[in-house]
Design a protein around this nucleic acid. Structure first.
Lengths: 147, 147
DNA sequence: ATGCAACCTCAAGCTAACTTGAGATCAAGC
DNA sequence: GCTTGATCTCAAGTTAGCTTGAGGTTGCAT
């Protein structure tokens, strides 16, 4: 096991800091794939360490698991991201960060205008009517910013 | 009912655009209070329209309901926010927007450095180790940015 | 042969912010 | 008096990203 092409779920967990339960969850969601040992235990490739790293970093950048899965599924043969893949993906992440910053700056401007006003009128308030990119659809948390 | 100090939950819903079920939910969470009619139906004050507006605007600014409840509970007698209250609250919102923008700018800088690198190493990647304000505690979505 | 950690598969729980549905009551017009 | 629409309560469902627990194997060392 020390020098094998395959690693156990526990090894993958230790090498990435991701909980075993989370790894199973990622697999269930299609972000990872595994083989099974004779006794039905998961066997991952060493390269999956890198794949999990990619998932973690993409998450930090604000991508949802579903989006990450989409990116990963675009890679041929479900391969682990290469430098080229990473460049393409990271550029699109950058664009989304830019958009977020712009949105926040707009909100801040509106808030400035609003501070002295205090009308709190849904019809008149700039704040209320700006910033619609922040709305979520359907049930679930409407949540947006955090820091 | 046309000229009354009190309004029904349906009226409050129509005046604010908030669903009846959401209003009940806000009340349950302590953001609103109501009296009851003889037949056990909720009666809100007209000023609750303004109170709901406040909730909506604060949500747009990224406050969670629990935080909004905290702000509202600081007001004497559960009164509806005045201009002075609003100024105080909106300044603290501004600070949090500023912090979010700063965090995003930091992330963007790190990403720039990272694009040409592509190492995806959890030990070395700047991205992975920066930006820890973005982590959530406990179960639930870890998610942070959206737009 | 035995003991123990690591692993397995479900199922259910957590948070946020609500919505949806069931089953019952209320209010108001005709 | 009847129907219709608005309300009522309470329970369960929704999304995201996992965790926790129950109950049962596997794998490796002694």
């Amino acid at each position: 096991m020390v020098e094998d092409r395959f690693i156990s779920i526990g090894d993958l967990s230790r090498r990435t800091g991701v909980a075993v339960s989370a790894i199973r969850f990622y697999e269930e969601k299609g972000l990872l794939t595994s083989l099974r040992s004779r006794g039905n235990q998961r066997r991952f490739l060493r390269s999956d360490i890198r794949r999990v790293s990619f998932i973690l970093i993409a998450q930090k950048l604000g991508l949802a698991l579903a989006e990450i899965e989409r990116e990963l599924s675009l890679l041929p043969q479900g391969r682990t991201p290469t430098l080229g893949d990473w460049e393409r993906i990271s550029r699109s992440m950058r664009a989304s960060i830019d958009a977020n910053i712009a949105l926040l700056e707009l909100t801040r401007r509106k808030l400035e205008e609003c501070i002295g006003c205090g009308c709190l009128s849904l019809r008149k308030c700039q704040l209320y009517n700006a910033n619609d990119g922040a709305a979520a659809h359907g049930p679930g948390p409407r949540f947006v910013l955090k820091g």
